[in-house]
Design a protein around this nucleic acid. Structure first.
Lengths: 107, 107
DNA sequence: CGGTTATATAACGTATAAGTTATATAATCG
DNA sequence: CGATTATATAACTTATACGTTATATAACCG
C-alpha cells in the first residue's frame, strides 16, 4: 500500500510526531504550530503538507487561517497493518512457550 | 524517542514491510528473504540491518546462516505511541471542534 | 587444504528529505 | 485602495536513503 509508505514516512520525523501530539490536544493553526518549535514557518508548512498527504491530518479554511486537526484514516490503516505483526508475535510467543514447556521436563 | 524515528522510518519502506510480513510466517535466512524479492542480496542485507537497528527483528547465528525473526520491542513502542493518537481520535476531538466552531461563529 | 555457500561491507550514482531565505498569494482591516 | 496577517511556494544547500556491482569474511565440505 502506497498509503502506508506515506503514513509511516510521515511518522518517522520527530517534528511531525510532535505536531500530531499537539493536535491530539485539539485543532491548531499553522502559526500556533510554528510557535513551540524552533523552526521557520515554511518548514512547518511543509511538514503539515506531508501529514496531510499521508492522511494523518485534515485542514479547513477559516478566513486567512487554515486550522489543522487529526484525521482517523491513516491511523486506522497503520493499526490494521501492525495488527498483523502483533498477531504473529503473539503466535510466536505461544509457540516459544510450547517449546520451553516441552524442554522443561528434561531437567 | 529516537527509537521511534528508527522504527517508523524502517516501516516506511515497502520492501521492509514485506520482509516483516514474510517473517510473520516464521523465521527465515537472508537468502530465503532475497528469493521472493527482485532485488540483490546486499540490498536485502541492508534492509535487514535497518530492521534490526530499529528493534523490529532479531537474528541468531546458525553455522554460516543468520536467521531473522520478528522482535516485539519496537512494535510495542509504536503501539504505545499510536495509542495517544487513537485516544485523541476516539475522544472525538475533531467532531467536538467542528461542533464548537459551528456554535459560536463570532471569535 | 581449496572450493563453495551464506552473508556483510565498500564504493558509488541518483533521488529525495529537510532545512534555510526570499517571495507570492489571499483574506482582513483601516 | 494600501498595509497587515496568515500561509504557501520557489530556489537552493546539505544530508541521507536506496539501489547497484565488486569484493571481503566466515563457516562448511570434499
Amino acid at each position: 500500500m502506497a498509503n502506508l509508505d506515506a503514513a509511516f514516512s510521515a511518522l518517522a520525523d520527530p517534528t511531525r510526531r510532535a505536531i500530531l501530539a499537539r493536535l491530539a490536544l485539539g485543532e491548531a493553526t499553522v502559526m500556533e504550530l510554528v510557535e513551540p518549535f524552533e523552526m521557520t514557518q515554511p518548514a512547518i508548512s511543509r511538514h503539515l503538507k506531508v501529514l496531510e498527504g499521508a492522511g494523518l491530518i485534515v485542514r479547513r479554511s477559516e478566513g486567512t487561517k487554515r486550522p489543522c486537526r487529526l484525521a482517523p484514516s491513516a491511523v486506522a490503516e497503520i493499526d490494521q497493518w501492525l495488527g498483523m505483526l502483533r498477531r504473529a508475535l503473539e503466535t510466536n510467543y505461544d509457540r516459544l512457550d510450547g517449546v520451553l514447556a516441552a524442554m522443561k521436563p528434561e531437567k
